[in-house]
Every structure is written in C-alpha cells, then in structure tokens.
Amino acid sequence: MESSISETETALVAALRAGEPAAYERLVREYGGRILAVCERLLFNKEDARDAVQETFLSAFRSLDSFDGRSQFATWLHRIAVNASLMKLRTKRRHPEQSIDELLPTFQSDGHRSNPGSRWTNSAAEISEQHETQQLIREKIESLPDSYRNVLILRDIEELDTETVAEMLELSPGAVKVRLHRARQALRTLLEPIFGGSSK
C-alpha cells in the first residue's frame, strides 16, 4: 500500500505551489532521472522519451493543484510520466499490429501441448548478468506489439496494479489480465533460445 506524502515532499509541493523557481529546479533535478527511465522503458526511443519527460514536468506543473497528498509525490509523478509516454505512443502508432498467435502455445485435442519445447537450463540471474543478453531481452520486449508490450511493462516492470493499468489504457481489468498472460507467453517463446531451450 502506498504511504502518504513525506514531510520533505510536503515542503517541496508547498514551495512549488508558491511558485518558487528553485523548487521547480529541485523537482526536475531530483526526479528527472527516474522519470526519464520510465519514459525510456515505455518508448524505447531516447528522443521520444526526452519529449515525454518534458511533457511530464509541464503537465505536473500545470496540475499541481490536483495532487491531494494521499499518495507519494513520486507515485503521482510516475503516473503522469506513464500517461505522457502512452500519449506519445498513441500519436506514433501508424500501422496495424501483428498477431502474436504464432508465439503462443498450441494444444492437441486432448489438452496436451503440441510442442512442449525444452527445459530452460540457465537462471534469469545468470542470463541477465551479460550486457549483450540484457540488450537482446530488451529487443525482444520491444518487438512485441504495442498493446501487449505496454501491459507487460506497466504490470511487470512499473508494477502498477491491474485496475490502474486498465484505467490508463482504457481497457477492462479482464482484458488487461488476458493481454498480460499472452504477452508473457509470447515473450517466453521469444526468450527460449536465449535461455538454452530449443529455438523456435
């Protein structure tokens, strides 16, 4: 459960609302790196991420009055950054999404899997220690269609709950759960060669 705003954050918000220039600068310097990281994770493009960071802070400055202190200030800012990134993605979406059906498990009529694949021999920690492999994993995540990748990142990486993600993406909670499951399954198939399983 989110804790409420700290004394330090309370003082910062008060200074922002009073229009103190130093408070704006402090906000940008203190939270900017984290916000850039969020935007880069969602957008996979440094230039777009920088635009989204700027929009995040300008949006936060404009809507300071809507911050009610029930959540941490960082959480409030994080959600603005996610929304700014999603907005950027919506404006850039140009082509129909590809189906991920071929990346999902298939089953025989008796319910057994058609192609069970092989056992993954490496641990996630072992695999992720290598810089090149981390880059490869990021590329596989990026290759997922937007509608699946966004749900996966918001739920598994940004650790937002299903209801919050549903609200942000204008989906039902059930649809978020289905997309998350399909996204994880598709990504599992894409990562199988990296983890020592059979390639597909």
Partner: peptide, 15 residues
C-alpha cells in the same frame, strides 16, 4: 517465471 524475472532485470538495469 524466468521470463518475468529476466525482463524486469533487463529493463531495471537500463533504468
């Protein structure tokens, strides 16, 4: 499980 863990780690390390 490893898929979830590895994707979290890959994007967190970037962060």
């Amino acid at each position: 499980r490893k898929t979830i863990e590895a994707s979290r780690k890959a994007l967190s390390e970037q962060a």
